[in-house]
Simulated scan of single mutants.
Amino acid sequence: MIYIIQKAAAILIGSLLISIGINGFLVPHHLLDGGVTGIALILHYYYGFPTGLGMFILNIPLCIYAWIYERTFLYNSFLGLIVASIFIDWLAPLRTQFLLSIFTSGVLGGAFIGIGVGIMLRYKATTGGTDLLAQFITEAFSVNIGFVILIINGLIVTAAFNTLGLKAFLFSCLTICIIGMITSLMARTSNS
């Protein structure tokens, strides 16, 4: 029972931090996160589509696949996906609250998101998306999950390069690196 309460708290706190990172720091400078969140941000930047709703809709095919083939992955991701999606859209007013430089925003956004993801991963929870897709690919092809996530994130940011421009592309890469380093550090310390 205590573990369930801790997991729920991790999902709430992690989702809150991810939402602050996205809305407070990435969106004001049109920076991207990787994975499904990155695609949802692209939809937001170009079509005004709500980021959290986009993230949820884009995860539906992965959730269906997980329901059919790997329900454990679905159980560990679905609640995190719902909470993070709601928080991201609910905290959209933060987009005008922290008017910092693009460098500072990239670093802080990456830190907030990395800590949020790391907290959730400590309790085997995720927001779905790239983590869920990478788990499927790793299971199918026996490749390193970190490598798979890096490739997917790199493809998404590269696909947006022409429309975002060089500056946003470079700082999005910085943000993704910070997210990866902090998430890896937190995952490593939780295993020791």
Rank of each mutant, 00 (worst) to 15 (best):
M1I: 07
A10P: 08
I13A: 06
G14F: 01
G14H: 01
L16M: 08
G34C: 04
G35V: 01
G35A: 00
V36M: 01
A40C: 06
A40H: 00
L43R: 00
Y45M: 04
Y46K: 04
P50E: 05
P50Q: 02
G54K: 01
M55C: 04
I60A: 06
Y65T: 05
Y65V: 01
W67L: 15
I68N: 08
E70D: 10
T72Q: 15
F73M: 13
F73D: 15
Y75S: 11
Y75R: 14
N76V: 12
S77C: 09
L79D: 12
S85G: 11
I86Y: 12
I86R: 14
F87R: 00
F87S: 07
W90R: 06
P93W: 07
Q97V: 09
F98G: 04
F98M: 07
F98I: 05
L99C: 13
L100G: 04
I102M: 14
I102Y: 05
T104G: 10
T104F: 06
G106W: 02
G106Y: 02
G106P: 08
V107H: 06
L108A: 08
L108T: 07
G109M: 00
I113Y: 07
I113L: 15
V117D: 09
V117R: 09
G118C: 11
I119N: 03
I119P: 03
M120W: 02
M120A: 11
L121E: 06
R122H: 13
T127D: 11
A134Y: 03
A134G: 02
F136P: 07
F141N: 09
F141R: 12
S142W: 11
I145Q: 00
G146K: 04
G146N: 06
F147Q: 09
V148H: 01
V148S: 08
V148K: 05
V148I: 10
V148F: 05
N153R: 03
G154D: 09
G154T: 03
L155H: 04
I156P: 01
T158K: 04
A159E: 10
A159H: 11
A160Y: 01
A160C: 05
F161S: 02
N162I: 14
N162Y: 13
T163C: 04
L164E: 06
L166H: 10
A168L: 08
F169N: 00
L170M: 14
L170C: 13
L170K: 13
F171H: 08
C173N: 14
T175D: 07
C177I: 15
I178E: 07
I179D: 03
G180R: 10
S184G: 15
M186W: 07
M186N: 08
A187F: 10
A187N: 14
A187S: 12
T189F: 13
S190H: 11
S190M: 13
S192Y: 15
